[in-house]
Design a protein around this nucleic acid. Structure first.
Lengths: 192, 192
DNA sequence: GTCTATAACGGGATAGAC
DNA sequence: GTCTATCCCGTTATAGAC
């Protein structure tokens, strides 16, 4: 049973996807959640508290959708797993949109907010490491440096494609194609 | 002689680089420019006017630094020109920082602001086209589609690397290395 | 826990003198 | 053209009833 607090965070995720972190108005959030602003301040200390806890909430959800998989399907090959992991972030579903939007906002905000940088850098490092490991399974003979480089390029490219998609400069299908081709290229590069 | 208005826009560029488009406070801009807020409203109709004209001003400057070149140096090869064009955006100079920051802000804002999207998409298209043409000189046998794809990947990657740099997740030198390697890879891909 | 009503404040914008 | 002083509104945050 989703608690009141949880449903407020769900509403906050929707508002953030619509207005951005910096565009979130407590009053709009209250309307979206169907509660009063006072209740929001009761559950979250202040505006910053709303943001902090909601971003954490969104991050937890992201881990879920990133790892969930149909239990009856044949186990994916390493290459398939790599593609799926990366392409998952380029999907037009509510959750992915909310998550990518929030991530992009976090990234953009960190340019001007020192306090966000460490968290963001750490999360980025973990993500890059994850992709590097998948690449290592696909191309086991590659050096650690080469794997790290490929992973950094692929994840940075994904971030770039993602904002272009969300900002209306690139159709989703095309973004997916471009990313798939980049994966091909990087895998080939590691193999040569 | 830089007019008062111009020096306000220069100050605005600095404030934007420090606080972002959405973080610009007219009062802070006034302090930075050493004038009163009223004078700012005298020269620029309103906050939006400040932003519009300053972004235009920044854009004009960008074209200058993108195309300026030492007249005594030997003419660059097509490959060099390609690398220089892209790597120019990854430099720790005041102007590039201001410009990349502003571009990133524009990109991030467009996710939530319909009115920015068209301009941004057009600017992106022009930039991609430019890079595609340079790639075409390096690899003349490539199809238009392949060139466009490579250009889209390289410019999207550059945007991704740029925010990572500005948000403190990636040292500048490393970003440059990653981009150079990506250029290598894309050029090789076109040649194969 | 949840609401209504309102205080408090930050920041955009303007009036009017010089 | 430029300043000082100030208005005014949107938004965050809280007081107090239920």
């Amino acid at each position: 049973m989703a608690s009141r607090k949880t449903s407020i965070m769900e509403a906050a995720a929707r508002v953030i996807a619509r207005r951005g972190v910096r565009g979130l108005r407590v009053e709009e959030l209250a309307a979206e959640a169907g509660v009063s602003t006072a209740l929001i301040y009761y559950h979250f200390k202040d505006r910053t508290g709303i943001l902090r806890q909601t971003l954490e909430f969104i991050n937890d959800r992201a881990e879920r959708y990133t790892t969930e998989r149909d239990p009856d399907a044949p186990p994916p090959t390493a290459r398939e797993e790599l593609e799926q992991t990366l392409l998952l972030e380029l999907q037009d579903t509510v959750e992915v949109r909310e998550n990518s939007t929030a991530w992009g906002e976090l990234r953009a905000s960190a340019v001007f907010d020192e306090t966000l940088r460490e968290d963001l850098a750490r999360a980025t490092r973990i993500w890059v490491q994850e992709v590097a490991e998948l690449l290592g399974v696909v191309q086991p003979m590659s050096s650690a440096v080469a794997l790290a480089g490929a992973a950094e390029r692929l994840t940075a490219l994904l971030e770039g494609l993602s904002v272009r998609w969300l900002s209306g400069s690139l159709p989703l299908a095309h973004a997916r194609t471009l990313l798939t081709e980049a994966i091909d290229t990087e895998v080939a590069r590691l193999g040569s």
